[in-house]
């Protein structure tokens, strides 16, 4: 198993290199001069030329990419063109907010979505089932910005229970997490319900009943674990996406997370910041994926055998 994980970590390197190269290329192809962007509209032609020379912008594209890569391997991802702050510091400062919102949203989806999905499946076509399916459908259809604004209207303006914007206390994170969780929750409910419906019709469920198992034991011990794989997959993908930053929710609730950071970098052609933050998001996403894959082996022993076989070859 250790060998398998090491192999997967090793395979992340080409992914990260590829992403950084493509990003670097795209930023290079877009019009605009970083030196002018840094110095502003009133700089003279000489000042700009001098800065270009200093930053090495006149070199060939491959030379510049190679120089960037060598520095990056040593931990130096450059300074932001816009703020002159080292990009690593900026990402480091912004990630906790993103992580907190994403983590809370995903926990909310798991803790509510899985039980609701299970009940829905076990009592198929009951009132509970119909209500939960309808709720799921509504949550998938509502745009996040609208849902966020409605929450602010109700809980901040009308009731005054929660602060509308900012990221200072735990209270600030409630509405953003709920907003982000809404769509994720809907997917989790529907996924759990459909896989549970499939699993509870399996022969081994009937075997468990024939052994004299209680209903609860049949559902949670025998059925749920078999139904979890697809649910974990969906949640993993969702979590990976959320960790890359959620622009809309960050904008609505005035949280400075990774999402706003990336969009601002694109707008201001802040290449070092953009390349580093996207690379970071990709890295986090890959790690979450690896985590999900490792989790599979604990849920389903058959998956473990496959991994071990593949790691051997």
């Amino acid at each position: 198993m250790f060998k398998y994980i090491m192999k997967r970590l090793f395979l992340m390197i080409p992914v990260i290199v590829g992403i950084s190269f493509i990003l670097f290329l795209i930023m290079d192809l877009t019009p605009g001069d970083p030196a002018r962007a840094i110095l502003g509209d009133y700089a003279t032609q000489e000042q700009i030329a001098a800065l270009r020379e200093e930053m090495g912008l006149n070199d060939n594209f491959f030379v510049r990419y190679f120089r960037y890569a060598v520095n990056a391997v040593q931990g130096d991802f450059g300074k932001s063109y816009r703020t002159s702050v080292p990009v690593v510091e900026e990402i480091y400062a912004r990630f906790p907010a993103t992580l907190q919102v994403a983590f809370q949203a995903i926990m909310l989806s798991i803790l509510l979505g899985v039980p609701i999905g299970v009940v829905s499946a076990v009592r198929q076509y009951s009132a509970i089932d119909i209500v939960s399916i309808a709720t799921a459908l509504i949550f998938t259809s509502i745009p996040a910005f609208w849902f966020g604004l409605m929450l602010i209207l109700l809980f901040s303006l009308k009731l005054g229970w929660l602060p509308a914007v900012g990221a200072d206390s735990w209270k600030h994170f409630i509405m953003p997490s709920v907003t982000l969780a809404a769509a994720q929750l809907a997917t989790t409910i529907r996924m759990t319900r459909s896989t549970m419906l499939e699993v509870i019709r399996q022969d081994y469920i009937r075997t468990a009943m024939a052994k004299g198992a209680t209903r609860r034991c049949v559902i949670f011990k025998h059925a749920l674990r078999n139904a979890l794989l697809p649910v974990v997959t969906v949640l993993g993908i969702g979590f990976g996406n959320l960790l890359g930053g959620a622009l809309i929710v960050e904008s609505v609730f005035g949280i400075s997370g990774l999402g706003t950071l990336m969009v601002n970098s694109v707008k201001s052609k802040d290449a070092p910041m953009l390349v580093a933050s996207v690379m970071f998001a990709a890295l986090v996403g890959s790690l979450v994926n690896l985590g999900v894959d490792v989790l599979y082996t604990y849920i389903d022993p058959r998956v473990k055998i496959q991994y071990l076989r593949r790691a051997k070859s």
Binding site: Y204, R206, T207, A210, G212, P301
Partner: peptide, 19 residues
């Protein structure tokens, strides 16, 4: 069920819980 009367089902391939 399982103590006074037990039942064996037709297909052993699917009668056991895979996990």
């Amino acid at each position: 069920r399982g103590s006074l009367v037990s039942m064996i089902f037709q297909d052993p391939m699917t009668s056991l819980n895979p996990v």
